[in-house]
Design a binder for these strands. Structure first.
Length: 570
RNA sequence: UGGGGUGUCGCCAAGUGGUAAGGCACAAGGUUUUGAUCCUUGCAUGCGUUGGUUCGAAUCCAGCCACCCCAGCCA
């Protein structure tokens, strides 16, 4: 076992794998897979599964496949295949071997289906979908056998071949497993294995007009790829008996022969499914349907809208792969339904960015300040650390002139109790520069504050002021040197903890203030210098990143990834 | 009402018979030219509930309660 595995927090999956390794259950192999259906964009919930599958493989010198579970061409597309691959790579994971597709096993799947028919374990059914529903029974009543259940093997084989040949219309026939219509587990009531769909498939084109179902495909695909641990979410728990039934009713030697490792697999142990709880986060929605609706209805600007819980959205928002991976690790893996607090995700990104983001000053809502002790053309360039603790990040040049901007929130004529910023007649330090005193407040006819005139204590550059303490520190940008930028302040998309609750309409719970765009912000020049980073801490404000889509050289756009923690409540 | 699951601090979550880890959040101090970071301290005599077994139970047994999933030719 990997020596570092001992220091990782335990969870029931790690424990299970350790046990399997100890007993050499799969000959010491650990082989997992991440099996998305390419029918949408990945979200933070998928990240949990990705981290789990790839993580547990890496911890044990195993492998993890990427397999697109593409058995339903009606909902899938190449666009999603590409986006998913890109997301996984971005997260920093590497799949084993080539990208797999369930659809590349269609021939083998077809042969195995014939085998089930030959073994009297499957039959061709002519019941319509509606009839099948009636025959299935209910949760409390058993179902009834299909009238076609007793069809002769030769006839089933012939009909199945004709289904494949395209002789029948969609829905006219299906291939069903022959299990038990009275099973208390509805998944075992002669589930459909193949359905007719005259549809073009993004990988196989028009080669097929019959498509295998998830239940039939997944277990065999796992077996073909010699997967040892097939990890999926809780809602598939009831499917596990079917997963096992299909593999158990197939010829084991044929399965072995069809597998990637072929006859060399020793021992050949069938893959086993283990379920874990999905990730849920409060104040957001994770359902693909809802996410898609928000995109289609322009509630958000796209799948990569920075407010979306998609990986594309989080990325554009400024989340890092490291933060997402740390978050997934801190959330853990269990079997209990749980809802993780958004605060945990926020903590993960703050923790990573605090370590890695260079500091810069940006004034969001500028208030002009004249420093009256400087001459008209005054200009000096201060050298400031890019990071308060990481010397290796070096320094940046910050120009200072006679006029600077500070944030309007950092000045108050009538300050609330505990206000540590600028007040009339009061002092404050310009971060990294001098202590200034507010001497005069300039107002227009309406009484709106237009600017401040401040004196400067020239002896306070890099030094504490004489004989007094100045508590407040305020960020600033030189008016003559600052660069105008747009800044987008993002907040949670919903204003209720659980927008997906049964009794609420999630669209009614949208937070109207989830995006606030500021058009008049001013950033210090180093933020946009050649070779500068794209993620910063705007000191005293939060972490921001250059928007990857809307930012241009003439109008830079910054997204607020997350605010700084703020223990001061005014 | 059939079947399958889950219940440990406000939120995650370890723990698998020997006397409740950790993280987030929160609170109080300290450091600080970011009200940030960092540091220190506090935060479940109790593990859904009621009984039982045991020298000893979150862990074993029984009953009860609550919540989640399943009646797609979706995954």
């Amino acid at each position: 076992m990997n020596p570092s595995a001992g220091s990782l927090p335990s969870n029931f999956i790690r424990n299970m794998i350790a046990r399997d390794l100890a007993t050499s259950k799969h000959g010491g192999r650990v082989h997992t897979r991440f099996p998305p259906e390419p029918n949408g964009y990945l979200h933070i919930g998928h990240a949990k599964s990705i981290c789990l599958n790839f993580g547990v493989a890496a911890e044990n010198d195993g492998s993890c496949n990427l397999r697109f579970d593409d058995t339903n061409p009606a909902k899938e597309s190449q666009e999603f295949v590409d986006a998913i691959k890109e997301n996984i790579t971005w997260l920093g994971f590497h799949w084993s071997g080539p990208v797999r597709f369930s659809s590349s096993y269609f021939d083998q799947l077809y042969d195995f289906a014939r085998q089930l028919i030959e073994r009297d374990k499957a039959f061709v059914c002519s019941l319509s979908a509606e009839q099948a529903r009636e025959y299935r029974g209910t949760l409390t009543e058993p179902g009834r056998d299909s009238p076609d259940r007793g069809r002769a093997t030769a006839d089933n084989l012939a009909l199945f071949a004709r289904m494949k040949a395209g002789e029948f219309a969609d829905g006219s026939y299906s291939l069903r497993a022959k299990i038990d219509m009275a099973s208390p587990n509805i998944n075992m009531r002669d589930p459909v294995l193949y359905r007719i769909r005259h549809l073009s498939h993004h990988q196989t084109g028009d080669t097929w007009c019959i498509y295998p179902t998830y239940d039939y495909t997944h277990c065999i695909s796992d077996a073909i790829e010699n997967i040892t641990h097939s990890l999926c979410t809780l809602e598939f728990e009831d499917h596990r008996p079917l997963y096992d039934w299909i593999l158990a009713n197939l010829d084991k030697e044929a399965l072995t022969a069809a597998s990637d490792l072929g006859a060399s697999t020793d021992p050949y142990v069938l893959p086993e499914q283990t379920e874990f709880a999905k990730l849920k986060l409060n104040y957001t929605v994770m359902g693909k349907r809802k996410l898609k609706d928000m995109v289609d209805n322009r509630v958000v600007t796209g799948w990569d809208d920075p407010r979306m819980p998609t990986l594309a959205g989080l990325r554009r928002r400024g989340f890092t792969p490291t933060a997402i991976r740390n978050f997934c690790e801190s959330v853990g893996v269990s079997r209990s339904d749980s809802v993780v607090d958004m605060g945990m995700l926020e903590h993960a990104i703050r923790e990573d960015l605090d370590r890695t983001a260079p500091r810069v000053m940006c004034v969001l809502n500028p208030l002009r300040v004249e420093l009256r002790d400087f001459d008209e053309g005054h200009e000096e360039v201060l050298q400031m650390a890019k990071h308060p603790k990481d010397e290796a990040m070096g320094r940046r040049s910050v120009p200072l002139g006679r006029e600077v901007f500070i944030d309007r929130a950092d000045f108050a004529e009538n300050p609330p109790p505990g206000f540590k910023r600028l007040v009339p007649g009061g002092e404050v330090r310009l971060r990294g520069a001098y202590v200034i005193r507010c001497e005069e407040v300039l107002k227009d006819a309406d009484g709106t504050i237009q600017g401040l005139i401040c004196s400067v204590d020239l002896a306070t550059l890099g030094k504490r002021p004489e004989g007094r303490k100045v508590k407040g520190v305020v960020h600033w940008v030189s008016a003559a040197h600052g660069i105008p930028v747009k800044v987008r302040l993002y907040d949670r998309l919903f204003n209720v903890e659980n927008p997906e609750a049964k009794d609420v309409d999630y669209l009614e719970c949208l937070n109207p203030d989830s995006l606030l765009q500021l058009d008049g912000a001013i950033v210090e020049p180093s933020a946009l210098a050649q070779g500068a980073a794209t993620s910063f801490q705007f000191e005293r404000e939060g972490y921001f990143c250059l928007d990857s889509a809307d930012s241009s050289a003439s109008i830079p756009v910054f997204n607020r990834t997350i605010t700084l923690r703020d223990s001061w409540s005014a």
